[in-house]
């Protein structure tokens, strides 16, 4: 299975999902008007990955901004991974937020309250 690599843009995050290490990076901004268009290939890639996942999958989320239409798509990404977590695979989500960015910390806590995968909240000094 190939890695999923998407270059970031002013409205979309850079994506680097490496199936050989189980490390998935989402970084930058996710503020497209039509988030489904952007996240559709990501969801399709994940459908393949969850068929034979690594023993440990680590998702690193380093978002500066995301809009509410992306928030639903991110939840769908986490729900897909929750499926393999429930089947006994290890999954962790490292949610990064910049110092003083309480809104981004709270956004991580929103997902933490919904998703059963363990979250680690990581404060990045600016």
């Amino acid at each position: 299975m190939n890695s999923l690599v998407l270059k970031g843009s002013p409205k979309t995050p850079s994506i680097n999902f490496d199936p050989s290490t189980g490390t998935f990076l989402i970084e930058g901004r996710s503020i497209p008007e039509n988030s489904l268009d952007f996240y559709k290939p990501i969801m399709e890639w994940l459908d393949s990955y969850i068929g034979s996942p690594e023993e440990l999958t680590t998702v690193v989320v380093k978002l500066e901004y995301f809009n509410t239409s992306s928030s639903k798509c991110l939840l769908d990404v986490f729900k897909k991974l929750e499926g393999i977590f429930k089947r006994g695979h290890k999954v962790s989500i490292n949610w990064h937020y910049e110092t003083d960015d309480e809104d981004m910390l709270e956004a991580g806590e929103d997902y933490q309250s919904i998703i059963k995968i363990p979250f680690e909240m990581i404060e990045d000094e600016v």
């Binding site: 039509n34 988030s35 489904l36 809009n67 509410t68 239409s69 928030s71 639903k72 798509c73 939840l75 929103d110 309250s113 919904i114």
Partner: peptide
Amino acid sequence: RLILNNDEFSEKGGGGLG
């Protein structure tokens, strides 16, 4: 949180999440 986790909410909105 309720709207985010509600299946009625779509990419275009609809649930008033924005």
